[in-house]
Simulated scan of single mutants.
Amino acid sequence: MNNPSKDYQKLIAENSSLKQRIEKLKKAAESGNMGANTVQSDKKFDAIFQCSPDVITITDASSGSLLDVNDSFIQLTGYSREEVIGSSTKELNIWGSIEDRERIVNQLKSGTNVDKVELTFRTKNGELRQMLFSSRLVEVDGRQLSIAITHDVTERNMTEEKLLESEEKYTTVLEDMEDVYFEVDIRGNIAFVNTSSCKKSGYAKEELLGMP
């Protein structure tokens, strides 16, 4: 039986190796063996990874094991870094729908990037969050990694739903009014009429809409 502690330590060592590679790139640039642009690119990636308000994960594409996650992932999901590194998102039961996971994995394997797909993710305490998910495969030192960036749109979706409910209630009130009520657009054409307007004018709603 595999020792989970040893597996975790192995993954930590691999991550440390990747960070050491960045340091070597810096030294190579200083010695003139590599362009400074490459080092600047590595620095920018590290800064974006650590500071991004969006969730960013780096996954081993062959095993599905998480190699690294940023602080936003920890804050959103409620998992500790120790719980996450070396585990797969499937094992952590993060996907709201396992079918979504399989579809995303198959799409990436086919060579097609995933861009801004709305999915449901599950946090450690079981809360479901609506996420806008993007991912692509990259090769680093001969190893295929999945880089994913996920934006939480839960609050945005809730706000949109409340606005829609409010608009529906507003429309219902206007439709039930006995008084004539209509609205015009910026060109002065009728954009909305209530039922009373139709009854008292003798026109159907379709005929009134668009009239100047």
Rank of each mutant, 00 (worst) to 15 (best):
Y170E: 06
S97V: 01
S166L: 14
F73K: 01
R129P: 00
F121G: 00
S97M: 08
E102H: 04
R136S: 10
D141P: 01
I74H: 12
N113Y: 10
V138E: 14
S134G: 14
S65H: 08
D60C: 07
K109L: 15
K109C: 04
M131H: 03
E127V: 11
E82Y: 10
L66D: 00
T123I: 12
E178P: 05
L164C: 09
F121P: 00
L132E: 15
Q144G: 02
L163M: 13
M131Q: 07
I74W: 15
T171Q: 12
S63F: 05
T89K: 13
S80T: 15
L128Q: 09
I149A: 09
G86P: 02
V117M: 14
E139S: 15
T154Y: 08
D152Y: 06
V117T: 06
K124N: 07
D141M: 13
G86D: 08
T172W: 03
F121D: 05
N70P: 12
G142I: 12
Y79I: 11
G96N: 03
L128M: 08
S110K: 08
H151M: 12
T150L: 08
E178L: 10
L128G: 00
I56H: 04
T89H: 12
G126Q: 09
I98F: 10
T154C: 05
T172R: 11
S97P: 00
R136Q: 13
L174V: 04
A61I: 02
Q75T: 11
L137G: 02
E168H: 07
D152Q: 07
E178S: 11
E160T: 03
L67P: 00
F73S: 01
A148V: 00
S88Y: 10
L108S: 03
S110C: 07
E167Y: 10
T123W: 05
T89F: 14
V153R: 09
V138Q: 07
R136W: 02
L76P: 00
N113E: 11
I58L: 15
L92D: 07
N157R: 15
V69D: 01
G126T: 05
T123P: 02
N70A: 09
K162W: 08
S65Q: 13
V180S: 04
S110M: 05
S110I: 06
G64T: 04
S65C: 10
I56W: 04
